[in-house]
Design a protein around this nucleic acid. Sequence first.
DNA 1: CTGAAAGCGCTTACAG
DNA 2: CTGAAAGCGCTTACAG
Lengths: 331, 331
Amino acid sequence: MTIAHIAERAGVSAPTVSKVINGRPEVAPATRQRVERLLREHGYRRRGGQGDGPAGLVDLVFTEIESPWAMELVRGVEASAREVGAGVVISVLHDRAGPGRDWVERIAARHTDGAILVGSRISADRHDRLAARSIPFVVVDPDGEPPAGVASVGATNWHGGLAATRHLLELGHRRIGMIGGPPGMLCSRARVDGYRAALETAGVPVDPALIGYGDFLVGSGRDGGHELLSLPDPPTAIFAGSDMQAFGVLEAARRRGLRVPGDLSVVGFDDLPLARSAWPPLTTVCQPLQEMAALATRMVLDPSPGGREPRRVELATELVVRESTSPPAGR
Amino acid sequence: MTIAHIAERAGVSAPTVSKVINGRPEVAPATRQRVERLLREHGYRRRGGQGDGPAGLVDLVFTEIESPWAMELVRGVEASAREVGAGVVISVLHDRAGPGRDWVERIAARHTDGAILVGSRISADRHDRLAARSIPFVVVDPDGEPPAGVASVGATNWHGGLAATRHLLELGHRRIGMIGGPPGMLCSRARVDGYRAALETAGVPVDPALIGYGDFLVGSGRDGGHELLSLPDPPTAIFAGSDMQAFGVLEAARRRGLRVPGDLSVVGFDDLPLARSAWPPLTTVCQPLQEMAALATRMVLDPSPGGREPRRVELATELVVRESTSPPAGR
DNA sequence: CTGAAAGCGCTTACAG
DNA sequence: CTGAAAGCGCTTACAG
């Protein structure tokens, strides 16, 4: 499928199609739309010479890569990209607002076969530009509700939050603190809502003073932990929105001379490899990060000519009980 | 610099140059050599059309990415690549023997601007192929002595091992265990040699039973820790070749009911962000991973027309004393 | 806003 | 083993 083919079908000349692809301004809106639609329908790809073929590249775009959490995703994407001989291009946005205006042009210039966005937004404009160049893409753990027609991959965060909180309730805890991730992120909100749902189902009142928010990193767990433990009536258990936050809570507890789980039970979320080596080994909600990454990669790289309609997939989470939880001291 | 220019200078036709670049067999050895030399000297890069310019891609090749250690390198490379608008392609070899035969062809096909190899070997064959396509490359923490003419980046590992061991000696320890990384890796051997040098300088005999080797990951620290602590005359301090191994040692100590640093002092190597959040906060040797990565990226991406001769650079390490070390119990 | 013409860098098929 | 010729996909400069 070359520029000439598209031009013929659109009833325009090759140069005009070239201009549309390169985002030149001097094209009539109606023409641009007609050409973009054909480009998309035929899955046009630039070929940089006689028989270049696809570049064999997936773009993996993070907002931050401070947590080992990101590495799990990298491992998953790398492994499935390798299976089909593709390379993985990593970039870091440092901004949850999503990729900038010229991002699509940059990745198109390197002939990327598809893009995976992690934890960011995707504007309608970026979405349209990707579609015009038929670069498939998926959002993992989107920040906010993605626009209609955007495929996404996540985990059953609500269920995870429910299971974690239920576990603490079953051990006999009644004052259970929660330190969530960024409140704007769907995955984070769902975990908090699962926590609330478990409390409400058990007839335990939800105390807003027991709910804090952070950024999924160690520091926010430490700060949130100190805050909750300074309360006049402190919690006997804390559910953290991520394993890193849980590590921060452990640190805060130790600094205050509290033993875990004797004086304070702690539950994390993610089940990073490190959770097993923490002290005490961390009870946490396992989300299959590598599988999520592999699925996103396949969605983006596999032509699957029939099923091009965008999907929203949530993979199952599972509570993993280790040694950081026990009945509260009073019992 | 186009194929036509090279052809003119080599006194051959453009198709012949094209054949050399694409590794076609039907070129006389003498011609091939002459063309390859010119290609290299002029830093020829394929341009996939009128004004494609460089692809803006750095290949970052790991043998494994299980440790958060790898993420620090990724962060450093990504940050400096971004400065010059380049993307970072990550791949994982799962083999310390280095990249396979067709690796150079694959990265050349995507027009990579340079390659950074982490912790692997680079064969003379791969080296020659990279040179023929003038793809600059650097090895970070090479496995074994790299061939002559290969640029490398590392840290002052020997000094780090010396400083860590000296610190333990100054605290009064005399039986100091060491759990090193893979004995084949230069960075690992240098740390062990620094340990030996410190002991010898202090007049403390080196006991081979106190030296173990592993793979830089948590598991090998745990296993090595248990082994050392099972000795009839166990060490009062352990120096681990990496922070992850030190975490494993902490785990082994706790499983045996030993307190750190009361019953056992532990020193790591790397100073990962996690070292600060460990319990107790880990005394460790800081190596500037992000700076090492940034330097490697600049070496590979910066044309620096004058200074093309390969360099070997070691960045300084520094002991960071936290709370996992103290005088031995007897004192 | 559009396209015929010229041009770019590269590759292929084939004659020698 | 080599290269003149033809061709590919794309872009640019410019006339209308």
